[in-house]
Amino acid sequence: MSEALSLSQERTQLFTDIMDGKIPKRVPVASNFAHEFAIQYAGKDLKEVQWDTTDLEASFEKVCEDFYSDLLSVSAFRMPSFYRILGSRNFVMGSNGFLQHPEVEGLKLEDYDAFIASPYNCILERVLPNLYPELNSDPVTRSLVMAKAFKAYTDETNNLFRIYGNLIDKFNYGAVTLFAAFCEAPFDILTDQLRGFKNITLDVRRIPDKVEAAVNAAIPLMIKMGTQVFPNKYNATFIPLHMAPYLRTKDFERLYWPGFKKLVEGLAEKGMRSYLFVEQDWMRYLDYLAELPAGTVMTFEYGDPKTVKDKLGSKHVISGFYPLTLLKTGTKQECIDKAKELIEILAPGGNYFFSFDKAIITLDSVNVDNTKAVLDYVANNASY
């Protein structure tokens, strides 16, 4: 067996052991760099490379060469081309080269009943023309715009998958992905793309019955969206969690949790694992997370690692907690010591892999040398 193949298999085994509830030979590392970081780190122009992706693979390669990870460490979630064709209001390229998500209202207040009756039809007929003005036209023009946008989307996606495949082969990454599909909690999709933060906050107080009905209507749609093309218990569907920390507990219990739990359970019934980015502070909701199907993967942004380990670590796979802010402001030794501290808390008993508390998006958000030092330390020293 070649050394390269052996390394890839070893890295794969680290994560499959975790997914099987076994203790791997060492703590695996899953670093997560956004394409914006990669472009900046390679010294390329952020705006140019996102529109002409000729240099994208070389930018990704430089990150893979310089930063340790057992899984593919860099990805592009959204590219701007198809959003520009659609005249997008919900994702807009800023002058600094970063795709922004402004506050939008895709679903009007008067459209709640239509959404509750048929979410899919309502999104096609009412939401998309609101979010993408180029679709708010006559049928022929609308069809041509959609065809152009879908062609741009498939071209970008196919190119990214080609790059990912090349990088996985070249750098012998493990054959496990935590991003095999993507969806949102039903309440979050209602907030992020349909009503907006301000409107949903008002709706929760003024028309909670309709909010609850809309969340329930969105559940099947989110299960379908989160279904992997090739279901695999070692891969996962990525679900970023947004609104729960901003809700009163009683609103969370009624409007957020039931739909979200049904989503994760629905995916599990189809043989799919969920990978949750537990955004902001979920400490008051840990007992709820404990109810999710065993083996759910959770990366925590904030909170008390020991409490999370005690409450969830025997049933679920835990990651995160390492603050990017420390990579920016701390000394190299302080950064390494923080990694040691988290590993001592989270690694015993297994069900843990190392990652930072969020994806690294901008070059100036971290000290590069500190980041490399922490990843190298964990790769060479972290055991269970």
Results as ranks from 00 to 15, higher is better:
residue 182 F to V: 12
residue 183 C to G: 11
residue 184 E to H: 12
residue 185 A to S: 12
residue 187 F to H: 02
residue 191 T to C: 08
residue 191 T to H: 03
residue 192 D to S: 09
residue 194 L to A: 08
residue 194 L to I: 11
residue 195 R to K: 00
residue 196 G to Q: 09
residue 197 F to A: 11
residue 197 F to W: 00
residue 198 K to Y: 11
residue 198 K to F: 07
residue 201 T to S: 15
residue 201 T to L: 09
residue 202 L to Q: 01
residue 202 L to V: 11
residue 204 V to S: 07
residue 205 R to C: 06
residue 206 R to G: 01
residue 206 R to W: 04
residue 208 P to W: 00
residue 209 D to N: 13
residue 213 A to R: 09
residue 214 A to D: 07
residue 215 V to G: 08
residue 216 N to F: 09
residue 217 A to C: 08
residue 218 A to W: 08
residue 218 A to F: 15
residue 221 L to V: 15
residue 222 M to S: 06
residue 222 M to R: 01
residue 224 K to M: 15
residue 225 M to H: 13
residue 226 G to Y: 00
residue 226 G to C: 06
residue 227 T to G: 02
residue 227 T to W: 06
residue 231 P to T: 07
residue 233 K to M: 02
residue 234 Y to L: 04
residue 235 N to I: 00
residue 236 A to V: 06
residue 236 A to R: 00
residue 238 F to T: 10
residue 238 F to H: 05
residue 239 I to P: 04
residue 239 I to W: 04
residue 240 P to S: 06
residue 240 P to D: 07
residue 241 L to M: 10
residue 243 M to C: 06
residue 247 L to M: 14
residue 249 T to V: 13
residue 254 R to N: 04
residue 254 R to I: 12
residue 255 L to V: 10
residue 255 L to R: 05
residue 258 P to V: 11
residue 258 P to H: 11
residue 259 G to R: 12
residue 260 F to N: 04
residue 260 F to Y: 15
residue 260 F to G: 05
residue 260 F to D: 07
residue 265 E to A: 13
residue 266 G to H: 14
residue 269 E to S: 12
residue 269 E to G: 13
residue 272 M to P: 00
residue 273 R to E: 05
residue 274 S to N: 01
residue 277 F to P: 05
residue 278 V to G: 00
residue 279 E to D: 10
residue 281 D to P: 04
residue 281 D to E: 02
residue 282 W to G: 07
residue 283 M to Q: 14
residue 285 Y to N: 10
residue 285 Y to Q: 01
residue 285 Y to G: 03
residue 287 D to F: 02
residue 288 Y to P: 07
residue 289 L to C: 00
residue 289 L to T: 11
residue 290 A to D: 10
residue 290 A to C: 03
residue 292 L to F: 06
residue 293 P to L: 11
residue 293 P to W: 06
residue 295 G to Q: 10
residue 303 G to Q: 05
residue 305 P to H: 03
residue 307 T to R: 09
residue 309 K to C: 02
residue 309 K to S: 06
residue 309 K to F: 09
residue 309 K to E: 04
